[in-house]
Design a protein around this nucleic acid. Structure first.
Lengths: 194, 194, 194, 194
DNA sequence: GTCTAAACGAGACGGTACGTCGTGTCTTCGG
DNA sequence: CCGAAGACACGACGTACCGTCTCGTTTAGAC
């Protein structure tokens, strides 16, 4: 089962895919801006045509590269107490945004997604929603287990927990402190814990 | 004091300033994107030269227009109970973002400010910081009056209160509900009230 | 002798050759422009690879197709009086250029041959020179038989006879009339007849 | 009378116009092919945008340059005997095509005009027709003066005279000899002289 | 009432990036 | 070995904005 169809023609080169994703990320991190399609192609040693064949825009390349590297950050343990689980997820996010390229890449992608609807959809579907769903799942688990108050608005709680981190990432008016996750959780918990 | 220097030559035309600000806002709201300098100038019936003389970029025009219209939304009453005051401010913001052009304009400006440092500085200084300071002031007032717990991290509380609104504005994954302000306050209050 | 070498492997498909030649001609006639290699291949239901394997360019395909269809128009009778023979040849050409695809194809090939030396050589060798040689042959036959004046410059006479037709084909400033052949002959004859 | 309209805005730079025309001609003569718009702009030290603002294509630039340099070659004397006048015009053309850049430029423009209708129109209107009209005028003058036979088809005679030169330019199968004009005239004259 | 300096309009210009099209080559598989 | 499918590099295309510049023309206030 799941037999691969016997591909016709020359297969896509995985090296070039990697080269493009890496080049885009490096350029974005270096300049702090969305790289141009041309610059990505040149640095990757790939023709512009090839790039356009596989991605509709520079933002799409960046997004794929981002997801490629940080896909693991969503999974976490269902056996943990809800608070621990949520705090861990938030803490992971904070460190991801602050200490890895993900933060700077995400900033650019958010800018691009305000301008371009396709990027917005992709970013929402592939970045934010999976994380939100995971968090919502924990909240609902908490309600079911009695750790959290019945009637808690999961969507709102999740936003209250995660929004401050994104807010500081975007505006840069305050740092993403090490203890941000813990302190935000502490701020929200009294209202929802049983 | 503050006497105006006896200007020589033809004075700046206030009509044109207005025309430019309005044209920019209309275009931004119509298209959902940062208008081009050319488009603004054309619609305002003003030459590009004039526009560049007074503003460095389309984003600067938009920002000035935004501030021009919505400067009033910061002031609020120091006699109110802290919670009422903060909730009112947040509620004002939510409705501003949802029901007035300010929301859509701000979205674009946030995108521009990620790309362009000058816009970022201006937006932070002239939009976010005044509002944050006002809110922080209330929180500190609450601590002083005993309404709020001593040791409360004002900056964090303010972010926790306001971030969800901006978050939903940017990502668009959930609506800016009428009761958002009340519910977010309710979520945070137990942790900080005495 | 002259035995064909016992080819190894799959032999070339004549159907595909035909399909390519026809597709190229149809496209050229339809669009009025040199078709792209890609378009020819697609319409012929043949892969670009195959096309490139047998022809160096779209112009080469077109030329082969042209020659394939109109190879017969050169041969004519050595027993006819020289004037009749030449006028017939010219008349045949005029009608070929005006009433058959040959004219429009030739126009494109002439354009291609100005750009590309290889096409120029092929077109000259395989289209113009055979016709010129046949005409020159008649003129020389006329000189030998006394029908034409001794000392007549055959090459010049032939150009004087045929150039107007090509001229009008290329520039399109005047029509290729039915009686063009007769009238051009009449214009030249007094100067060369004995 | 003929008052110039009081130009608004920055006036067009004649230096750049010249630079573009010259660059195009040099490139065309150097390579033997239609230069790319990019190459022209680069060599002229002018931006591509500027070039596109004033000319629709490389061919248009080339044509303007051609006309700019060789506009004088049409005028000739109405007092001369018709044969002298026509032979002089033809001789001028032959030398123009052979000994000046005009010949090579015209070849390219003819190729371009087969491909592109706009170029065709421009070339016909601005190059061929003025020359044809001048020649036709002479023929008609000859008919009126009795030098030429009544009933002579002026258009045909003119084509018969001039076509061989263009024919040899395009195909390159025979040289544009010094005495080509004289010999072609000699070939046609007996049929039309009274 | 001029004078005059700035504001303003029109538009040329050099740039950079865009996304597309056509070319010709190369790679892989199937007949 | 022929052929299909298609990936790929390259080069040119024509367009859209950008920001700067160079003219000429108002126009309000100082003299």
């Amino acid at each position: 089962m799941n037999e691969e169809p016997p591909r016709r023609g020359r297969p896509r080169s995985p090296e070039r895919r990697r080269a493009v994703l890496d080049a885009a990320a490096e350029l974005a991190l270096g300049s702090g801006n969305l790289p141009t399609v041309d610059a990505i192609a040149t640095r990757a040693g790939v023709s512009r045509t090839t790039l356009y064949k596989w991605w509709p825009s520079a933002a799409a390349v960046l997004l794929e590269g981002l997801l490629d590297r940080f896909h693991a950050s969503i999974e976490f343990d269902d056996d943990l107490p809800v608070r621990t689980a949520l705090e861990a997820q938030l803490d992971t996010l904070v460190h991801l945004l602050r200490d890895t390229p993900a933060g700077r890449l995400l900033r650019q992608l958010m800018a691009a997604s305000i301008t371009d609807a396709a990027t917005a959809t992709a970013l929402l579907d592939q970045w934010l929603e999976p994380r939100r769903h995971a968090a919502v799942h924990h909240v609902e688990r908490g309600i079911a287990s009695g750790e959290l108050r019945a009637g808690t608005d999961a969507a709102l709680v999740v936003d209250a927990l995660f929004a401050p981190a994104y807010h500081r990432l975007v505006w840069g008016h305050a740092p993403l402190d090490d203890d941000l996750a813990a302190r935000v959780c502490a701020l929200v918990w009294p209202a929802i814990a049983t």
